[in-house]
Design a protein around this nucleic acid. Structure first.
Lengths: 231, 231
DNA sequence: TATATATTATGATATATATCATTAATGATA
DNA sequence: TATCATTAATGATATATATCATAATATATA
């Protein structure tokens, strides 16, 4: 991790329109002064389960995963956040400590804003509060939807989901580099690593995808969508 | 469904402390005048997927389920709400229409508050906004936690989870009446109905529980907890 | 009350998935 | 570059779960 020196100005931040559009110039100046931007190399932890909650985290660049080790020792990825996403879960507003861990899946730049500042904005700026709730609730519900989508399907449907997720949701391209390992895919879709590998090989043999290591090309997005739909 | 006439006063509502504690007397009076209490018989739908979002829903009494039919025709229960719970998902603040359906699992009384009123409170009452966000985020995250808890476990662990959920979370008793059918348990934990029945029979044979129809007595809560923990 | 319908229950069998074993390929490191 | 460690790949086998079939109860409805 590295604290960035030449920090960007919040006013010019490409993501400002996301949820910070309703701040007054003074409020914007305040977070601009107080925010800290940090760079994390792929694989680094941003925080781990049990760490105290201090900040509201905002992903500027890169890709991070939210994960947890279950009591049965299985590691589980709850969600993957992409640029413009608030990172974490809403419980930062109600919990003292983080319930999940977060680490960088790709080199990432994360913007830390003191949570008390966000709270004061909610308290004092009604337009911000309402808009913020809208934005943040969308993200929270999409995590729930993802879990349901995945868990009501079996292996092939889940793999199709994951491929479509990266192609459509993250990279917006048919050709991309898988940012996570086969083991991490397994932890994301709750299947064994071997079966993830097998399903990917199967999809390749069927001509649905080309895959060489982490390099993926999606050949037949419609058929992939159908596999997902039928589950 | 039946609109109740002898409505209770919000001031005296046992659940007011939950999230409406920071309202001014005038604001409280406003929701008291505008709220509508409705009675739903077991099995009735409160709303279905696609219905427009009008109200913030608050469960006064009874038990309801939030569910969805997937594209692969599997029905899936996302969560079960108990008294004092806000019902639904946060996306009511960002979506025009409901994404999931809700129906009564037991006879229930639901309090409908116009969503615009809640939104205006968020906009105009900072203390309310902050407290409301805290409360509502806790609920949202607990749904995510539940999905993870269930989906990282296999049949017996999931059944144990479900039994502990009703015993500890809903009824606070070792003896209770299962409010949902075996099929609904299956839809909740993403397993087949037959396997749910089999696991319950197995738990009975092992002396973990007594079960006769919907009537359940938990004999060995520690062992049940262990089955859940080991997954 | 009688009849139809849904729920619960259980066994047999098929299918899906996990686990174990082994090898190859890749990446990290001295 | 050589060595070690991790990841990926594949087959064989064990285990978990779903599906199909059938019967017994329970519940709803005419």
């Amino acid at each position: 991790m590295e604290v960035l020196k030449n920090v960007s100005n919040c006013k010019d931040c490409a993501y400002r329109t996301w949820a910070f559009n309703n701040l007054t110039p003074e409020e914007l100046e305040l977070i601009n002064n107080k925010k800290v931007e940090k760079f994390y190399r792929k694989g680094e932890n941003i925080y781990i389960e049990g760490d105290p909650v201090h900040s509201f985290l905002y992903l500027q660049n890169g890709l991070v995963k939210l994960f947890k080790t279950e009591s049965n020792h299985k590691e589980h990825i709850i969600s993957i956040a992409k640029p413009k996403d608030f990172i974490g879960l809403l419980s930062i507003f109600s919990n003292q400590d983080h319930v999940y861990s977060i680490s960088a899946v790709e080199d990432s730049i994360i913007c830390f804003i003191d949570l008390d500042i966000i709270k004061s904005f909610i308290q004092n700026n009604g337009d911000f509060a309402l808009d913020f709730l809208k934005k943040i609730s969308k993200l929270s519900d999409s995590i729930i939807k993802t879990r349901v989508d995945i868990n009501t399907r079996q292996l092939r449907g889940r793999i199709a989901y994951m491929l479509l997720f990266f192609a459509q949701n993250i990279y917006n391209a048919k050709k991309f580099n898988l940012p996570i390992s086969r083991k991490e895919i397994a932890d994301l879709i709750d299947m064994s690593t071997e079966n993830v590998i097998r399903a990917l090989s199967e999809f390749r043999k069927d001509g649905l995808i080309q895959i060489e290591g982490k390099n993926i090309v999606i050949n037949d997005i419609e058929r992939l969508q159908k596999i997902y739909d039928l589950g």
